[in-house]
Structure formats: structure tokens, C-alpha cells
Amino acid sequence: MNKLEIEKTMQMNSQKRYEYFIKKVSDYEEVWSLRNEQGWVTSKLDNGSTSLNFWPTKEHAELCAMKEWKKTVAVSIDLEEFIDSWLPGIDNDGVSVSIFFNNKDSITVPVKEILNNLEQELENY
């Protein structure tokens, strides 16, 4: 990825970043998150629930490896595994999904909506 694309996408509003996420992970067939020896990074939402965080590229995830996530590394997740295992498991656990945090905000999207959007995008391939 070039630096300009990374900078521009980090400045998009959360809905545009979500749309970019769907397209990019469909293109490259992988999703990215951050983890350390304790596990995957999580956030607390305003309502007190826990959210797992995902990014479209390694570069985007690494830009968020700061503050409480400073000692984390970007790890890829195969898109098929994300769709078949991760999202159903997240839904069963009652955990939220935070898409494309940019060190300011992210968008929380219901699992069923993410699945639907990914299936629709993947039909284009």
C-alpha cells in the first residue's frame, strides 16, 4: 500500500472506512487485527460491552498499535475463516465488532450485516 492511500483512508469517516474495509478484505481475502501474549485487542463500547477490532490491512492495524495496544503485533486472519468461524463465534459470544479504528473512532456493525456485506461484495469476484 502506498502512504497516500493509507493517510487518505485513515481520514475517511467511519462509514466510508467500513465500505473500504469490505472491499479491501474481499480483494485480498484477509482481515487484520492486533494481538499480544494476552490475546486479541478489544475495546469497551459506551454501553459497556466488549468489541473486537479489525482492519483491512496490516499497515492500518499497525498505525493503531499505540497506547494500550503499543506492545501488539498485526496478525492476518484468512477471510474464509473470518466468515465461517470468527463472525459466528463473535455473534454467539455476544461480542461486538469494531471495524477500522483510526485512533479516533470506528464503526460497530452487527455480525449479520458484515456477513451480508461481505457475501454481496464477494459475488463480484
Rank of each mutant, 00 (worst) to 15 (best):
L87Y: 01
K112C: 01
E80S: 07
T72L: 06
T72C: 14
F82S: 05
N2P: 01
N47Q: 07
L52V: 14
I83N: 09
S51R: 00
R35H: 04
E113F: 07
S98C: 10
E19K: 09
G39I: 00
M1P: 02
M1G: 13
M10L: 14
Y20C: 07
K44P: 00
I77G: 03
A65K: 08
D27W: 05
W32G: 04
G94L: 13
S49K: 15
G94C: 13
E113Q: 15
S96M: 12
L52Y: 15
T42K: 09
K16H: 09
L115E: 08
E19N: 11
F100N: 03
L87S: 06
E5I: 09
K104H: 09
N47V: 09
F21R: 02
L122Y: 02
T108W: 06
K23V: 00
T42E: 12
S14M: 06
K16L: 11
N13E: 15
Q11P: 04
N47W: 07
V109Q: 01
N2E: 14
E5T: 12
P56S: 15
L118K: 04
V97C: 11
E121H: 03
K71D: 15
G48N: 12
K67I: 08
K71A: 07
D105A: 15
E68R: 09
K8Q: 15
E123L: 14
I99F: 06
M1C: 01
N92Y: 12
E113A: 13
S14H: 08
R35D: 01
W40T: 12
